[in-house]
Nucleic acid binder design. Structure first.
Length: 884
RNA sequence: GGGGGCGUGGCGGAAUGGUAGACGCUGCGGAUUUAAAAUCCGUUGACUGUAAAAGUCGUGGGGGUUCAAGUCCCCCCGCCCCCA
């Protein structure tokens, strides 16, 4: 055995061994009455999953971190005797492939498949324990056939529909986007372009039908980070309130939605969205031109622009009025773009005294303000930062009054406490409205239906045929998949490239046989990724989307790992799909991902000049005191997410070539807790490499000594009969087992798990006698414990110690007798301050501990001349004297 | 404005209410070496102090609970994320 650790010599060897011996194959059950092949029925199962990557062609450090985390979990579970499903695949549809086709003329399929095989090799080089037999790629017909099939399930269930709507248009990618795919600044999640508004006929999925479930079932997700659940809840945006029917002068019903029906008596005007259907009939002849111009201007603005806080309010009076049903007051109806047609009813009553946006609008257009909530007393008014007088003076208000108080000028609500609680104003108002048949309590969601069609080529074609006679006809199941044609021209402009492929578009109607046309839009790639985790359970099924039995036995995913950027998008869509497929009786669980870990970013150091430009490190003379190569000014140093544009990317291939996969894995796990951002540091990588070298030398030294024969006797070891030193070593060994097992089974504290490996390694190196049974046990345990983290070196070392692959050995178990110490360190405190420690027998009882402490030199010194008031004895820990 | 998270040495980070800073990196000193790399040993919160000791302060700031607070409670400051 080599005394020098050389990862290049062992890593590919073991990767080949694992593949040859099918170590990572998902266990297959036995086919009999109750069990289906491929389903984990008897044993405990564990489904470990990383979010699958887009095959860009190159693995980056974020991937390495994500997959290493899941791999450690999968490997530990296997050693613990679980049946493990740990698959990998490709989120392979998407725009980069199409852009490559436009730029370089490479067919998207070729480009994608080449990238996949390249990245697959990179993944294999990391020693990730995937069952490659279950690999999926969403761009292959044997996968997207079933994506199309699922689309038809949605269609059949009435959850997929077409409608004409003002949608988000990405001018760079030349396609529409769902609301979730536009950030808070109105930019595309992919291209970063400012999205535009366009009126288009598009396909939608009725995710709003599941809004309530998607919100409520968040409670089931105890293994999810709180902030992800909060983000989803915010996105769904449930609000409760009431719909109230006003009457226009012409006698038409004008229904508004409000979360504060109790303030109805304070409504002084109304506002309609520019798109509201009643605008035309309400508009007077004199206002018509102004209104039309305003509508035209609003049509070009995105939701984000229209609702931005602090934006100057705009609006136009229609010239019309409506009647407030609770008090018969006639109030003017305005049109303004801060009211959205697709939220609530597209119409609001404006209560400027108690709504900030209404307040700003009223002040700008000099509309009346009427307060109907008054602070309960002066103190409340002052505390709230409002007018200090007992009553709010409408003419002096500088902001809407949003705090609690008492209802006034509100007919039946006068004197009632304002608020949403039991018996408070909001509930009383709803009861009143319902009693008088003026309105009713209702619930509203911010969540909108999911726009799923895209005007691009490289996606799953929507399996629909448009027939002039039969209308929208689903492609019959037997005709799936609707394959993407290959003879396509890519221009990157205008409609979907599919529209120009005549022989593909023109088909006969499956229903009546007449000449008809295929739908030329493809599906949002988020559909592909909303069910891939189900397909892994039965990845090679040619007959069905999956066997329900297999899916029900493997799912839910026990541990899902991915980036926080999918907190809403992918995770919300996947939850929605799961619920719909459950309601189609295809599976029997509510939530797809039991536990979720959102790993932090991988960052590296960047240098920025005063203009905010990133400077390449190789242009900087002295990295310890970096200055601008041109101006000589001091550069700003910070850690940012790795990227080419910031000149701080570290390609995984470089690290693998220099140190090997095991070092890369260990470094990434050790450097930071998984959910926190990780700062790349070459010196720390070096440190990990040194650590693996120490492990190698320690084990190699032992394996070459005569003591290696002791390995067979380890199972007979008994702490009781050992020397003091061996006992201590054995305690270190079993402490490591205990701590590492707990770190992994608990909150995935890989950083502390690795530090425990280091402690054990240190204890072994410090051992004076390296020929003992306790030492042999320590060495073998170290190799077993390090196996999930650094799988190659562990297998190489194990091959010199034991039989078979280390990854097929059982995870070590703690011998509690080894953890018992003969002596403990007793802390002596005086008045709560630690003054010293002493070694005492572990078996000492409270009285004995107090006696030891009292007689100790430190206590004598500190307690001299003082009176002991009280003694606190914490067994096994400390004695504290309270003395004056 | 609302919600969530965070604040600990030169750095990354550890600490069931019980010795703060585990483990690692960096720095410093030393051994080995013709020299270097590699390796090994020691040291590395601040301050006071010494021959050796020993002591004081210290987990963003201020208060509180407790024999004992990084940890629990109240107020404040700063940073990050999400939603408006």
């Amino acid at each position: 055995m080599e005394l020098r650790y050389s990862p290049a010599d062992i890593e590919t060897k073991w990767q080949q061994y694992w593949a040859d011996h099918k170590l990572n194959k998902t266990p297959e059950g036995i086919t009999n009455g109750s069990q289906t092949e491929g389903s984990p029925k008897n044993a405990k199962k564990f489904y470990a999953l990383s979010m699958f990557p887009y095959p860009s062609g190159d693995l980056h450090m974020g991937h390495v971190r994500n997959y290493t985390i899941t791999d450690v979990i999968a490997r530990v579970r296997r050693m613990q005797g679980y049946q493990v499903l740990h698959p990998m695949g490709w989120d392979a549809f998407g725009l980069p492939a199409e852009n490559a086709a436009i730029k370089r003329g490479v067919p998207p399929a070729d480009w994608t498949l080449k990238n996949i095989s390249q990245m697959r090799e990179q993944l294999k080089a990391l020693g990730l324990s995937y069952d490659w037999d279950r690999e999926v790629a969403t761009c292959l017909p044997n996968y997207y056939r079933w994506t199309q099939w699922i689309f038809l399930q949605f269609f059949e269930a009435g959850l997929a529909y077409q409608k004409e709507a003002a949608v988000n248009w990405d001018p760079i990618d030349q396609t529409v986007l769902a609301n979730e795919q536009v950030d808070s600044e109105g930019r595309s999640w992919r291209s970063g372009a400012k999205v535009e508004r366009k009126l288009l006929r598009q396909w939608f999925f009725k995710i709003t039908a599941y809004a309530e479930q998607l919100l409520n079932d968040l409670d089931q997700l105890s293994g999810w980070p709180e902030r992800v659940k909060t983000m989803q809840a915010n996105w769904i945006g449930k609000s409760t309130g009431a719909q109230v029917t006003f009457k226009t002068e012409a006698g038409e019903d004008l229904v508004i939605y409000t979360t504060r029906p109790d303030t109805l008596w304070g409504a002084t005007f109304m506002v309609l969205a520019p798109e509201h259907p009643l605008v035309a009939s309400l508009t007077s002849a004199t206002q018509a031109d102004l209104i039309e111009a305003y509508q035209a201007a609003a049509a070009n603005l995105s939701t984000i622009d229209r609702t931005a806080e602090g934006r100057e309010k705009t609006g136009v009076w229609t010239g019309g009025y409506a009647v407030n049903p609770v008090n018969g007051e006639k109030i003017p109806v305005w049109v303004a773009d801060y009211v959205m047609m697709d939220y609530g009813t597209g119409a609001i009553m404006a209560v400027p005294a108690h709504d900030q946006r209404d307040f700003e609008f009223a002040r700008k257009f000099d509309l009346p303000i009427k307060a109907v909530v008054q602070p309960e007393d002066e103190a409340a008014g002052e505390a709230a930062g409002e007018a200090a007088s007992e009553t709010i003076a409408e003419d002096k208000m500088t902001a809407a009054y949003l705090h609690d108080g008492v209802m006034v000028h509100s007919g039946p609500l006068n004197g009632v406490a304002s608020g949403k609680g039991e018996g408070e104003s909001v509930q009383r108002a709803i009861a009143y409205l319902e009693e008088k048949s003026l309105g009713h309590g209702t619930t509203n969601y911010r969540l909108r239906d999911w726009l799923v069609s895209r005007q691009r080529y490289w996606g799953a074609p929507i399996p629909i045929i448009h027939c002039p006679h039969c209308g929208t006809v689903p492609v019959p199941e037997k005709d799936l998949p609707v394959k993407l044609p290959e003879n396509v021209e890519f221009s990157g402009k205008g409609a979907s490239p599919l529209a120009k492929v005549e022989d593909w578009v023109n088909v006969s109607c499956p229903s009546c046989g007449a000449a008809a046309k295929r739908e030329t839009d493809t599906m949002d790639t988020f559909l592909d990724s909303s069910w891939y985790f189900l397909r892994y359970a039965d990845a090679n099924n040619e007959e069905a989307v999956f066997s329900s039995e297999r899916v029900n036995s493997w799912l839910p995913v026990d541990q899902y790992v991915g980036g926080i950027e999918h907190a809403i998008l992918h995770l919300l869509y996947s939850r929605f799909f799961t619920k719909v497929l459950r309601d189609r009786n295809l599976l029997n669980f509510d939530e797809p991902f039991q536990r979720l870990l959102t790993q932090g970013m991988v960052q590296a150091i960047t240098y920025k000049n005063a203009e905010g430009q990133f400077i390449m490190p190789q242009d900087i003379t002295d990295l310890n005191s970096p200055t601008d190569p041109v101006t000589g000014e001091r550069l700003q140093v910070s850690f940012e997410k790795m990227s080419k544009s910031k000149f701080n990317g570290v390609p995984p291939s470089e690290v693998l070539a220099k140190y090997g996969a095991d070092t890369a894995r260990m470094f990434i796990l050790f450097k930071a807790p998984p959910e926190k951002d990780l700062e790349w540091d070459d010196a720390d990588v070096e440190g990990q490499f040194r650590f693996l070298n120490r492990v190698w030398r320690a084990v190699a030294g032992f394996a070459q000594s005569d003591s290696v024969s002791l390995v067979k006797q380890i199972k007979d070891i008994q702490s009781q009969s050992l020397s003091k030193e061996d006992k201590a070593l054995r305690k270190a060994t079993h402490t490591a087992i205990k701590e590492i097992t707990e770190d992994i089974e608990g909150d995935y504290q890989f950083n502390t798990a690795v530090s425990e490996l280091m402690k054990l390694s240190n204890a072994l190196n410090d051992a004076k006698n390296k020929t003992t049974l306790a030492f042999a046990e320590g060495i073998c345990t170290l190799v077993l414990l390090i196996a999930p983290f650094a799988p190659h070196i562990a297998d190489e070392l194990w091959s010199h110690l034991g039989e078979g692959s280390v990854h097929q050995q059982p995870w070590p178990s703690v011998d509690n007798t080894a953890l018992v110490a003969d002596e403990i360190t007793l802390v002596v405190q005086i008045m709560g301050k630690t003054r010293g420690t002493l070694q005492v027998p572990a078996a000492a009882d409270k009285a004995a501990l107090e006696r030891y402490a009292r007689e100790s030199e430190v206590a004598q010194r500190y307690l001299e001349g003082k009176e002991i008031k009280k003694v606190i004895v914490v067994p096994g820990k400390l004695v504290n004297f309270v003395a004056v």
